[in-house]
Write a protein that binds this DNA or RNA. Structure first.
Lengths: 337, 337
DNA sequence: CTGAAAGCGCTTACAG
DNA sequence: CTGAAAGCGCTTACAG
């Protein structure tokens, strides 16, 4: 077990000062001749700067804390992968924290993150208490919320245009001729869940329709399944359900099929997210696309701007996505299928 | 933006030396009186030790590098979440690296990891070249391979008992009365893929059967789908397919259903992994379970033993999992369904 | 451009 | 048990 070479060893071998070695590796000015000698010696010794030492001095760890819940929802692994790749491309690294799909426990996580001197925190579908937000703010650690806004928190956020998206899905159902439309909503404790429901209600209102039912599905499979069962078991049934995200919509489809109903003949179903699974033949789910790549880009851009002090105020970015019409819901009337 | 308090500031306020503060927070001996004064001052100042500074001195960053590919395969998000939780519970943190689903590029990742002085590396289904393995070894950084063995690499690994598992699936197909059994294999460049195929061949052999066909599905959806299409389009068709993992099996089911075949009547399908999706009604896939929780436990245990110098030699751990009989394949003959 | 020196925030022998 | 001091591996003014 050989121990890592240090800048001093490189300096000795290159016949220059330790400062010179540091300058070459930190991108400061150095003459071509010095740089050459240093690089040669470094290569021979397999030298690489100790990132931790550098971080301690500069105060920049180049680590971004990524807090994520809901990893069983296919939307997040994809987002995580893209976020991680985008950050790596910018020379940042990701310290990952997974938290039980709940609301608390984020407190300790943020403490840990701060202990590691992270340059920023990205929280995916996780709420930050105002106390924590204040803590991060006063510590100068920028926070960007991904896929979950928090009004009045002073935190930047990147989401899809959830109200519009909810309306988009609902209009599609209305245009297909449905009138008894139910909504199994996303968790009403989250703005994302509330906004999509808002879009649903607006669209129904505008069409002069009354919601068949609105149930909080909590973004959970089992609750969504139970809700679907409840909706479909009586005599008075909805003829369409807009579900707050794809993850729950799959559970709804599984449930109603098991009950003997077929989509879209007896029931149209529309989800939200357009995760890869939505396109698979087993579901072929009509859904509102969340443009993950653009959301990730916006998140990383916002984070970098915050870190580099280009933006000082918080940004609330909403990105629109299209409805993807598939076979789980009837197509708009008058349109050939 | 207030700057973090340092141990010196705490010392001043507590009326003790900076060393005393350090001792209290690093768990070294200190008198109750001193400890009390220090804790009080620290609390007032919101002091927390700078982990980076500590890491630099102790040489222990308490960071584990986690390298992962294939995040679109539902097995990995789940493993990632459990791994991350288990490591967090042990006081370690996870630096995440996602790599394009390929074989190279891992080189640079390991370099980055070493720059951050990680205490260990867990690589999930990623191959480490012998050169890299040597590098990690000589740097004293333990490596544990998750869900992918590498014979003769000197690296520890935790996998399921893939040969047995492959045989288990194949026996189930044979016992159900199938004779024209094909195998869409996992990537033959990986030991996991080869072992499962080995189990398939052994079981066929033992039953005096000849494989209908063996195709390398590369662990990829599109290749698995194309393979299934090819297998099913002629007149001579298999009556059962053992697929190298669930992720590919879903693609196979989607494909054959789209072609008009129904499982298990016209074709039995068995996968490998038992990801959550396998239990969903849309697939209800018979599969060999990989006990993720036990694999994660073994991985973390192995890693900790390596870090703490308890184990010096590499371990190759294989964990057996049961066959989970569902409706995508016919049940064993003579057994009531 | 370059070297000597101070210092980042800690841990850890070393004396007392 | 406790303080003064050295040192971890770097970066960064400061002179030259």
């Amino acid at each position: 077990m050989t121990t890592r070479a240090t800048s001093l060893q490189v300096a000795l071998r290159a016949g220059v000062s330790q400062s010179a070695v540091s300058r070459v590796f930190s991108g400061a000015s150095a003459s071509p001749a010095t740089a050459e000698k240093v690089r040669k010696a470094a290569a021979e010794l397999g030298y690489r700067p100790n990132v931790l030492a550098r971080a301690m001095i500069t105060g920049k760890s180049r680590i971004i804390g990524l807090v994520v819940a809901y990893l069983d929802n296919q939307f997040y692994p994809e987002a995580l992968e893209r976020l991680s790749n985008a950050l790596q491309a910018e020379g940042y690294h990701v310290l990952l924290f997974t938290i039980p799909n709940s609301t608390d426990s984020i407190q300790g996580v943020v403490q840990d993150l701060m202990d590691y001197q992270v340059d920023g925190i990205i929280a995916a579908s996780v709420s930050i208490s105002s106390g924590l937000a204040e803590m991060c703010h006063s510590a100068g650690i920028p926070v960007v919320l991904f896929n979950r806004g928090q009004p009045d928190s002073g935190l930047s956020s990147v989401t899809s245009a959830n109200i519009k998206g909810g309306a988009l899905a609902t209009h599609a159902l209305i245009n297909a001729g449905h009138t008894r439309i139910a909504h199994i909503a996303g968790w009403q404790g989250s703005l994302t869940g509330r906004d999509r429901k808002q879009g649903f209600e607006d669209a129904m209102d505008q069409a002069g329709l009354v919601p068949f039912a609105i149930i909080d599905g909590m973004f959970k499979r089992d609750i969504a399944a139970a809700s679907a069962r409840q909706l479909m078991q009586g005599d008075a049934r909805p003829d369409a359900i807009f579900v707050g995200n794809d993850h729950m919509a799959f559970a709804v489809m599984d449930t109603v099929r098991t009950m003997g109903f077929s989509a879209p003949d007896e029931l149209s179903i529309i989800g939200y997210d357009d995760v890869p699974l939505a396109a698979w033949a087993a579901y072929d789910l009509t859904t509102v696309r969340q443009p993950v790549n653009r959301m990730v880009e916006a998140t990383v851009d916002t984070m970098l701007a915050l870190i580099n002090g280009r933006d000082t105020y918080s940004q609330t970015i909403e990105i629109e996505g299209p409805l993807i019409q598939r076979s789980s819901s009837k197509p708009p009337k008058g349109q050939l299928q």
